[in-house]
Each structure stands twice: as structure tokens, then as C-alpha cells.
Design a protein around this nucleic acid. Sequence first.
DNA 1: CGGCCTATCTTGACTTCATCAAAATAAAGG
DNA 2: CCTTTATTTTGATGAAGTCAAGATAGGCCG
Lengths: 154, 154
Amino acid sequence: MDYSKRLHGLGLRVTRQRLAVLRFLEANPHSSAEVVASGVRDELPELSMQSVYNVLNDLTALGMLRRFTPPGSAALHETRVDDNHHHAVCMSCGRIEDVECAVGHAPCLSPSESHGMDIQVADVVYQGVCATCREAAQATEAVATGAPAHGSSA
Amino acid sequence: MDYSKRLHGLGLRVTRQRLAVLRFLEANPHSSAEVVASGVRDELPELSMQSVYNVLNDLTALGMLRRFTPPGSAALHETRVDDNHHHAVCMSCGRIEDVECAVGHAPCLSPSESHGMDIQVADVVYQGVCATCREAAQATEAVATGAPAHGSSA
DNA sequence: CGGCCTATCTTGACTTCATCAAAATAAAGG
DNA sequence: CCTTTATTTTGATGAAGTCAAGATAGGCCG
């Protein structure tokens, strides 16, 4: 939990920017770079976006942070790196929940046929509808789908 | 396999652009929008990027295509939509392989604790090192890592 | 078969997310 | 306290993808 020591141990300098990003992500998991920036600026108003990206990239590469990218959104970050957990994204509201993996320890880490690849990480993103959105949808049940929506309007 | 009929059956017009994109993706799975565009332009030189995006979005939404986004790259597309398979990405060269899921049919579809979410899709991205890159790395074993690489240069 | 209707495509401007480079700043060892 | 150089800041740049409006062409109808 002592981020200063962990940074030091990795040979990194202990800067206010890094500490602030780490503390923010500890309190606000699943944050995008933008969210991290605006959150950290409460305490460090002069923080630049570039620094946020630098910190997120460096700490992710060194294993102090974990990053994942839900479909159709910016990359998100969290401090939980050592347990192997996955994520569920609500297709309707975008809410994200942590999901412990169903199958023991290294669950999806053993694909049946991996074409000779040496698998090291399994990132699982579940997509579904959260309870809140499901209830909201039922309330609006009356408004049935007229025609399926396409990309091109007009 | 008859894309014309399937498009028609979905209430969509059968256009050369859609057919060409579908055929290209059938022959070249895991293609980005850019790759699709440049590939299809061999036969349809005037194809616009916007059309590629339109086709990919529409057909993905209607379930004729599947899309996934490996970390740090553009979205990729494929025509295999009905079997539930996953993907392995080589962290070194970016190569992508299909991976049948290890656990029976709906493998990762049963997270132990889903916070009330109604899970519908599980997207699994394995990250590892492919055989080719592993061998190449061993050959270059001599060049050991001096200091861990950071994001900011100097 | 020819014509109309409108879904689809093209063009072009515009977001968002993220990276690159160079100068300014500030950790940390001596 | 001073020096060294890792980090941060500033500003420009790039890639991926969306939005909007006019041009084109599927496809149903008579």
C-alpha cells in the first residue's frame, strides 16, 4: 500500500503526480485518462494530460496498474493487479463491475488450442445489462422496436 | 453462405459494398477498417472509408459480423459469429489467432458473481508470445535488458 | 421494363484518444 | 547545497472513428 516505497523499489522517482494518480485510481477504479486528470486536478491543478498518459503508461508497463479497454470507450485503469479478476460492462449504461473469475485461479488461461502461443494474460470482458438498466427497459416495454436501427441515418 | 439472401432476409439492400466487405472478411478475418478498405478497393476502387465504417457497424449490429478490439490497436472484424471462439494476440508482433474456448460451450459465460448483471457476451483476449517471436527473442538473448523502458524518453 | 422512393454511399468537416518532441522543472544522490 | 537526469509541461501531430448533407443506386410497383 505504500506507493512511495513501491515506486522507489522499481527504480522510479516518487513524484506528486504519480502518487496522486495512484491514490486516485485506488479510490476510483476503472477510470479513463480524462477522469484521472480531472480528478487529480482537485489537488494538483497544474497536472497536464501528457503527464497522466505518461504515468498511466509507465506504471501499467511496470505492473503497478492494470489497463483494459471496453468496446467503444477509452482505456480504463485500476490498481488491482495481482488478483486475476475480469470486468462486466453494461451495454446500456456503460457501468463497469469487477467479476471474480468463475474457474479457480488461472481460469481462462488454458485455451484448448493456442497455435503455439505462450499465453500470459487472459483479459475477459463480459457484456450484459445491469439490473438498473434492465428494470428501466421493462418500464419502457411499451415502446417496442419499430425497425432495427442502422448506422447511416437519413 | 449466401450473403445476398442473408442481407435481404435482414431487410437490408444488397449492395456491392456490403457484399465485397463480407467476402473480403470471409477470406481475411481479423481485419481493421483500413485493411478492409484497401483490400476491397482492389475490386471497388471508389469505396469510401465512411462506407466501410457504415457497413462494418451495420452488419456488426445485426449480427452478421463480429468485432473485437485488441489492446492498442484498431477494431478488428470477422465473419465467424455463431461459434463462440476467442482470440490470442501476440504481444510482440501483433499476430492474431482464433482460439476455441477451453471449457465446453459457454465457457466464461458464467462468472461467479456478476453483480446482478445479465451477461450476454464474453469476449476473451489472450495475450502471449507466438512461436515465431519466441524463437526470435531467444536468438537475441545476448542483448539483455539494461534498464526497463519507460514511456517518457529523455 | 421504366420510374419512384428512400436506403445507402460519397464527400468533407470534425471529434476524441493518444503519441511525439523539446524545453522547463524537480527528485535524489553526493 | 549542487549536479544530474528522470519527469513534467507545453504545443504540435497522428490515428480511429463519427456527424451531416448531397449524390447515387437498390428494389418494389405499376
